[in-house]
Design a protein around this nucleic acid. Sequence first.
DNA 1: ACAACATTCAACCAAATGGTTGACGTTTAT
DNA 2: ATAAACGTCAACCATTTGGTTGAATGTTGT
Lengths: 106, 106
Amino acid sequence: MTNPLDLVFSALADPTRRAILAMLLEDDMAVTDVAEPFDMSLAAISKHLVVLTAAGLISQEKRGRVKWCKLEPDAMREASVWMQAFGQMDAVDLDAFEAFLEHELK
Amino acid sequence: MTNPLDLVFSALADPTRRAILAMLLEDDMAVTDVAEPFDMSLAAISKHLVVLTAAGLISQEKRGRVKWCKLEPDAMREASVWMQAFGQMDAVDLDAFEAFLEHELK
DNA sequence: ACAACATTCAACCAAATGGTTGACGTTTAT
DNA sequence: ATAAACGTCAACCATTTGGTTGAATGTTGT
């Protein structure tokens, strides 16, 4: 009933969670550091991380008192594959992808 | 505020809506025919179609008393592009990305 | 031992979501 | 003219979602 795609797409539907994923694209991060740029409580971010973990989009590993968040890029692949069926879209839109890198990562 | 990606991903998060999109991949359909295979009311399907339309994933055109639903595959493109950064590429490995670009643009 | 730090838990709240039913406006066919 | 078909609207309902706050649980450094 709870299709993995449900979890992935609904996790991706929230802009805060997408921003978190973009941050983790650069490097693994502790929960507190993930929360820092956002104007919301740490508890709220903690919940978002639970959602991302449930979807398999990230993993969390506790070392000492710090819980490290790590991107799990494979989880998006199923969803990506599903979407490819609808494209006469190219596998990679180079212009858009470069624009994305420019905007999102730097 | 309401990022287009929000609308696309949250539209895709529901299995009924994904099934509708898959049906429309084959051919344009009237609302009643879209609803036929599902075990829920026509009104419920009508609402799902509103959500898909708001996300730009389909369009609806009324001809006579029949409203035709048509897939709009371009809407998924932005979302797909966003995902490419995580799914297909090892984003940490920028060397590989550059190599990819070089090969692709040659 | 103690205080500070990192994170989650629990209770709560408002708003959004996904469904129902019945009434309603159009358009088509007889 | 009337009835049937197509689809939406409005009101309602239960559940989920995304946020809050304050207390609680580890863990670390002094």
